[in-house]
Nucleic acid binder design. Sequence first.
DNA 1: TATTTCATTGAATATTTATTCAAATATATC
DNA 2: GATATATTTGAATAAATATTCAATGAAATA
Lengths: 191, 191
Amino acid sequence: METRKEQKERRRQEIIQAALELFVGRGYAATKITDIAKRANMSTGLMFHYFDSKEKLYEELIRMGLEGTAYPGEQKCEHAIDFFVNFTEALFAYMKEQPVVAKFFVLMAEAQRSEATPEHIREIAMKVNVIEQFVPIIEWGQNEGTIKEGSPLVISNAFWCSIQGIAERFATNQDIELPEAEWIVDIVRRK
Amino acid sequence: METRKEQKERRRQEIIQAALELFVGRGYAATKITDIAKRANMSTGLMFHYFDSKEKLYEELIRMGLEGTAYPGEQKCEHAIDFFVNFTEALFAYMKEQPVVAKFFVLMAEAQRSEATPEHIREIAMKVNVIEQFVPIIEWGQNEGTIKEGSPLVISNAFWCSIQGIAERFATNQDIELPEAEWIVDIVRRK
DNA sequence: TATTTCATTGAATATTTATTCAAATATATC
DNA sequence: GATATATTTGAATAAATATTCAATGAAATA
C-alpha cells in the first residue's frame, strides 16, 4: 500500500512528466494548464495543489534539466577525438534508451533561446553552457593533431548546434533513426 | 509621393517583418498581436485591417517561407560532394548577408514541429521537405565514392539537422560566427 | 468509531489576449 | 472645394486561459 507521501511524490512526477511532454511538443506558451491536467489524469484545480503556477512548474522542469546536465570531464582518453567519439556515442545511446533525454534538450533550448522566457528562468537555463566546456578539449585535440584547425569556440558551437538539431528532431519523432556518432564527430575531426 | 497602393503594401510588409521577428524570437503562441502592432508602429486595430487574424498572418508567413525555399537541382558539379560544398557555402553566405533567411528556417521548423500549429498551416509548412530532396544526390555521391556509406535518408537527416541547429542559433544571435561550410559537409564526406 | 487532516473536484472568478467597431483623420476623385 | 473612399485609432467586447475556492471524499490518527 502506498503512503500519502509516496502518493504525493507520484502525483508530482505525473504532472512533471505530462508537462515535459507538452512543453516539448507544443512549446511552453502554447501549453495550457488544462492540457497538462488532462494528460496527468487530474482536475485543473489539483495542479495548483502541487505547483503554485504554470511558471513555477516550468521553473522546476528547467531546474531538473540543469541538474541532469552533468557532462563528463576529460575522462581517460588517449586522444581528444576519442573523447568526442565516446561522448557522442554515449549520448545517442542514452537518447535511444531514455527519450526523455532528448526532450530535455529541447526544453532547455527553448528556455535559453526564447525571448518570452521569464528572466529568472532563463538565467537558470543559461547555466548550461556546454559550448564553453568543450573548448579545452578541442584545444587539446588541436595540439595533438586530432582535431581541426580553427577557433575552438566556433568548432564547439558547430558541434553542439548539430547535436542540438539532432536532439530536437529525435525528441518529437522517435521513429527517426539517429545518425552514426562518427558522422557527427567528423565535424571536429582533422582529416 | 507614395500612392495608396504603395502605402498599403509597405504597411503590409512592416507587419510581416515585425511578425517574423517576434514569431522567431518568442514563438508563435507567445507573440501577442499588440507586440506585433507595437513593433510595426501602429494600433492593434489596424492589424486587422491588413490581416483577418493572427493565424492568417502566420499562414501568410509560412507561405512566404515555403515559396522562398527553392533549392537548386543537381547543378553542374563534377562530384556530389561539390554540390554539398557549394550549397552549404552559398547558404551560409546568404544567411550572413540576409539574416532573414535564418529566421525563416526557425519559423518553418517551429511550424513543422509544434503540435500546437494549426493543422492547415502545418500542412503548408510540411511541403518543405529538403531531407528527401537530398537523397538522390547522396546516392550519386555514394556511387562515385565521395559520400559516406549508410542510409541516404539518415545521412541527409544528419546533415539537415546540423544545418537546422546552426540556423536556429544564428537566427537569434547573429554575433555567433558561422562555422566553415566544409566542417558541416564533413558529416557526409567519405574519408 | 470519531475526528482530523489531506487529496480532489469542478464551477466561479480573474486575467490575459484576440477581435470588433464607431468615430476621426487623411487621401483620392469629381 | 465637396464628396467619397481608405486609413487609422483606441476603447469596448469577446474569447481563451490561469487561478481560486468552497465543498466532497478519502485516508490517517486518535
